[in-house]
């Protein structure tokens, strides 16, 4: 029986404790702040729905980070892929004729996924053929994709009834999520059936990593590229495969937003899902089932932080970023300390 590694959880609690100390420095009561942060989602079914919507997005974004991470790739390009694929979903939803009905939804999904995957493969292309560092390429692509998405939406599909930079609503025929059971249960909150998909995805990724040949190859390559290549695992294939899967999950975040929640593209809709995904995946140490839990924890904090504006005098919603940063630091540190202890024991 493998011992479960709790170091990231310990890091998480140290992070929360340190943040509480910080809260005291800003002359707030840490108990109150923690209560707001953790209790905000319980206020109503609507709030719970919003939290679960964040959970959905965070889980997809976490998977989009964790799979390339297993292959030794630091994938921070999810943000750009999310924005670009959400744009694609909105554009398809506007231009496809209503008569397509459910088939139209399938088409939207397919087109969005293709865009997400291709966007991620761009990184793999530079990595494999041009020896560009994936982080650098991803940062550049994030800016480029965001610019393209904003341009396309504002120039061609701006909502005529709104002053805000956002696209028109997608065809009512494609707003099927409005009637789905989960959304109705949570009083038309942002959450939708994509939540189920997120749970299934985490399970599927767990299976993929544990039981399939491709999953094994990705892991083997990540642990020791030289040895893996000697055993006949192609570096090219691993890069394209891992980033392709990441792009697929990034595109699901875009779909969750456009087909599941707002039914339009709002410029700046993403509270940096791509980067939050990194926190989620690190907190779970890349374990797909763990990602499900850590995305829920992060969603609760994220939802709670938006209430800080009202509930406290000095803290703002930006405190969630500080909290995330401190959690990243503590988890990164705690994981190392644990590795060192395990090594010493062995």
């Amino acid at each position: 029986m493998k011992r479960i590694d709790f170091s990231s959880l310990i890091g998480f609690f140290i992070g929360v404790a340190l943040s509480s100390v910080l809260v005291i420095l800003f002359k707030e009561n840490p108990g109150d702040v923690l209560k707001v942060l953790s209790g905000s989602f319980l206020q109503s079914k609507f709030d719970m729905g919003l939290t679960l919507f964040y959970t959905t997005c965070f889980a997809f974004a976490g998977l989009a980070f964790s799979i390339p991470f297993k292959a030794g790739l630091f994938h921070i390009g999810a943000e750009g892929q999310i924005v670009l694929s959400a744009m694609m979903a909105a554009v398809m939803g506007i231009i496809l004729p209503e008569s397509l009905g459910t088939f139209g939804i399938v088409l939207i999904c397919l087109a969005t996924m293709v865009v997400g995957i291709l966007a991620a493969q761009t990184i793999a292309f530079f990595k494999v053929y041009k020896q560009g560092h994936e982080v650098v390429v991803a940062i550049m692509l994030n800016f480029i994709f965001a610019a393209i998405a904003t341009y396309v939406i504002l120039q061609n599909y701006q909502n005529p009834e709104s002053q805000n930079p956002e696209s028109a609503l997608i065809n009512p025929a494609f707003q099927g999520a409005k009637a789905d059971g989960i959304k109705t249960f949570f009083e038309q909150s942002a959450v939708s059936s994509f939540l189920l998909l997120a749970v299934l995805s985490c399970l599927a990724v767990w299976f993929f990593e544990k039981k399939t040949k491709w999953g094994m190859e990705i892991k083997a390559y990540g642990e020791n590229p030289t040895a893996a290549e000697r055993m006949g695992i192609s570096a090219k294939k691993v890069n394209f495969l891992a980033l392709g899967i990441a792009g697929f999950f990034s595109s699901l975040v875009g779909l969750t937003e456009v087909l599941g929640s707002t039914f339009q593209y709002k410029v700046g809709f993403s509270p940096a899902y791509g980067f939050l995904g990194i926190v989620v995946a690190l907190l779970a140490q890349g374990h797909p089932i763990g990602i499900l839990f850590s995305s829920f924890i992060m969603a609760v904090l994220h939802k709670g932080a938006s209430d800080l504006d009202l509930e406290t005098q000095f803290l703002t919603r930006d405190f969630s970023k500080v909290l995330q940063a401190i959690i990243i630091f503590c988890v990164a540190g705690a994981v190392y300390l644990n590795h060192r202890r395990v090594k010493r024991d062995a």
Binding site: F275, L282, I328
Partner: peptide, 8 residues
């Protein structure tokens, strides 16, 4: 990882 945290 830490750089991402610093920016946040």
């Amino acid at each position: 990882v830490v750089g991402t945290g610093m920016n946040l």
